[in-house]
Write a protein that binds this DNA or RNA. Structure first.
Lengths: 250, 250
DNA sequence: ATTATACAGTTGTATATACAAGCTGTCAAT
DNA sequence: ATTGACAGCTTGTATATACAACTGTATAAT
């Protein structure tokens, strides 16, 4: 059984994390099993208790183990519901070196009415900038984007939105400091005729609808829109349970 | 500005986390801003540096701040790509008190061939248990499930799978100790005629397809299947960026 | 037999300390 | 003007210590 090597460049706590992860992954430690107590791990690895605790805390936040005061630390069984899907897959699709281009189909001023006023909590006839964009990869359309932006001279409009290429701020993942938070929502949908035509897909194709609602630092909505992405271009995958890092690159 | 109250029942480190979170949420600390240094926070709150560090580490893992050795700790801008969607929403749909019942439509032995052999990495003509199930909520079908299970006396088959109601193991979230890991994948799809009929939905309705592949502790696939869930029944929502807890219950 | 009590072992919180590692500006030497 | 050394700041790692809170078991008193 491996021990911590204090001469390694890798910090001790990190080594402990890896060693325990490994023992779980290979099944030496099974779900429900109790880990050695902190003091036992101290003695075995020759490090202090704080170092062991640090390692165990990392495993706790990773969801690999659970601690129960007075009892010990236990290996968690695989929890189906613990699975999470990230937008990283979308990012790969977009920030690829695959020559992303954005074609603006429309940019017009509209007056708020109906759903928009409710969603964005604004007055009727508030002026809105409505945009329709097509995102192309190697000159093939892969996503269609529609968006309402508040158009109020008193509010500084998110700069990146107004660039010609636009969306760059989002796509490059630099993080936008004008937006405090955003509510995202994913639905399954079927391409409407207009969408299918723009995306050069057969009518009635399955697609994801990623809705976004951005808020500024005064908690006012500044942007509401959707990305429509045909199913063929996108798939969300994740691994849950004990696994080695290598599996993640699949 | 609030300070840590050492008489509170809430641990100091937790109080520090909340105070900093709050300052970020209300915009007192903006993306890119540098937090007070650890020693400054120590002095201000009257706690030790380790306590401050513990709090900051929690914020780091939450993605709210980022630390740069030698420079300081900075508030992270909202990162669109950091969004993650959990299966919790599915769990709500199912573990609801909404009278979930499972109707088994088919349970038959088949011989492996085609896609199944590749996906599950098994020999052709391996015996498989094929199941089709309909998940009902208040007697209304909400999901359709198809699954292949390895059927080999030498391998202990996941018990919960063979219960009459089945899927209970998954649905109740107790965690299954026979399964080490699972690969999950979400696609957008369109209901086929058979599916639409079973789910009492119009043909060509949009739906999610949640594919799962379960592995045992010897890293052998034991189950491959899909949940088909009409879009009307399911939507994945998440909040990214600085926000108060209350928002999460929407 | 039942109920308290005490004890040993566990994780949780908090502190004080020391040194390593990284960044930035200042100041002196060139 | 450029370079180099250094001081002073930051976060990162690691240890030793103390006590609190909780759990289970064994023991003693009833």
């Amino acid at each position: 059984m491996r021990k911590v090597d204090s001469n390694s460049y890798e910090p001790s706590y990190s080594q402990v994390v890896r060693i325990l992860q490994e023992q779980i992954a290979v099944g030496k430690l099974r779900p429900g099993d109790r880990l050695p107590s902190e003091s036992q791990l101290c003695a075995y690895h020759g490090v202090s208790r704080m170092t062991i605790r640090r390692a165990i805390n990392i495993l706790v936040e990773q969801g690999a183990v659970i601690t129960r005061q007075g009892q010990g630390t236990f290996v968690k069984p695989m929890q189906f519901w613990a699975a999470t899907f990230g937008l990283g897959q979308l990012q790969n699709l977009l920030s690829d070196e695959s020559g992303i281009r954005i074609r603006i189909l429309e940019a017009s001023i509209k007056l708020a009415e109906g759903r928009v006023t409710r969603k964005m909590a604004i007055k009727r006839s508030q002026r809105l900038l409505f945009m329709r964009r097509l995102i192309l990869s190697r000159d093939k359309p892969i996503m269609y984007h529609r968006e309402y932006l508040v158009y109020d001279p008193s509010r500084p409009i998110v700069e990146s939105e107004l660039e010609v290429t636009s969306l760059r701020g989002l796509l490059e993942g630099t993080g936008n400091s004008f937006i405090k938070r955003s509510v995202l929502s994913i639905e399954a949908t079927v391409l409407k005729d207009e969408e299918a035509q723009l995306l050069q897909a057969p009518a009635a194709t399955a697609a994801f609808n990623l809705e976004h609602l951005f808020y500024d630092f005064e908690d006012r909505p500044v942007s509401w829109g959707w990305f429509i992405c045909p199913a063929a271009n996108l798939r969300f995958t994740t691994i849950v349970g004990a696994h080695n890092k290598e599996l993640l690159n699949v």
